[in-house]
């Protein structure tokens, strides 16, 4: 990679991270607000957001802290809710460029969130490998958005008008849709996987008893179930393991 390519990869990453960061603001804003409402000092809420960079785990952690739970309980809650990240890191480990040494792996691990993972995965298809410089660009706005949103929420919850917060709430989902719809349109296999995951997730959300499971668990179960179904019904053809259209789409962008 020459300097111009590196700059381009960084820029691509940065702009891919922009909608993630925007979407994070509304969620982390709520986290900051709730933390302060539960009697936590603003600095603690901000520190938690900056060091954890995760939504479901932090909200659950807030409950544990408010109830003065034990450290063991806290560790277990985080383990269960965030276990899905292990799946994502495992998937990443198969798509990294050759420059990824231990330190670089340790750096990107910090930013392994659902959204960052998803966006980067969409870039690592067609035999393409993730570049470290792209990942650095990608991480910036999500980290700033997540931490900054918490700062705003903790310090001045009245700054963003309700209407804007409500609208920002859809940013993350709009992005998810942009990632899953085009390949689902082109490949029956991806469509089947997505629809089964959606069906399972609705089942867990609305069915009695099942709906008491935590969000993290539901995502793990739906993710594993639907992907296993897909791998069993439609094994991705060797050797490249990726559909051609994505290859074409992302080849010039990343």
């Amino acid at each position: 990679m020459n300097a111009a390519e590196r700059r381009q990869a960084f820029k691509t990453g940065f702009f891919d991270g922009l909608p993630i960061g925007l979407g994070y603001i509304s969620v982390s804003f709520t986290f900051g607000m709730m933390a302060v409402e539960k009697g936590m000092p603003a600095w603690a809420a901000i520190l938690i957001s900056f060091t954890n960079l995760t939504s479901a785990g932090q909200f659950a952690g807030l409950d544990v802290i408010a109830a003065s739970g034990s450290m063991i309980e806290m560790a277990l809650v985080q383990l269960v809710i965030n276990l899905r990240y292990a799946l994502m890191s495992l998937s990443w480990s198969q798509r990294l460029g050759p420059e990824f040494n231990l330190i670089k792996r340790m750096i990107i691990a910090y930013a392994d969130t659902d959204e960052v993972f998803a966006v980067s995965s969409a870039r690592a298809v067609g035999g393409k490998r993730l570049r470290f410089i792209y990942m650095v660009g990608l991480m910036i706005m999500p980290v700033i958005g997540w931490t900054g949103g918490t700062v705003i929420g903790a310090l001045a919850s009245a700054i963003l008008p309700d209407a804007v917060r409500s609208a920002l709430g859809l940013a993350i989902y709009g992005m998810f849709i942009a990632i899953i719809v085009p390949p689902a349109r082109d490949h029956r296999s991806v469509a089947v996987v997505v629809l089964s995951a959606v069906a399972a997730s609705c089942l867990f959300h609305f069915a009695p008893v099942l709906k008491r499971l935590s969000t993290g668990f539901v995502i793990i179960i739906c993710g594993i179930g639907a992907s296993a179904l897909g791998a069993w019904l439609f094994p991705v053809p060797e050797p490249d393991c990726k559909p051609p259209d994505l290859e074409e789409r992302s080849a010039h962008e990343c």
Partner: peptide, 20 residues
């Protein structure tokens, strides 16, 4: 199987996270 599984993971996770 594992390769295909890992290939489908992002789509499945995103679908489940988006709806409902």
């Amino acid at each position: 199987f594992v390769k295909s599984f890992l290939y489908y993971i992002p789509y499945a996770v995103l679908g489940a996270m988006t709806i409902p």
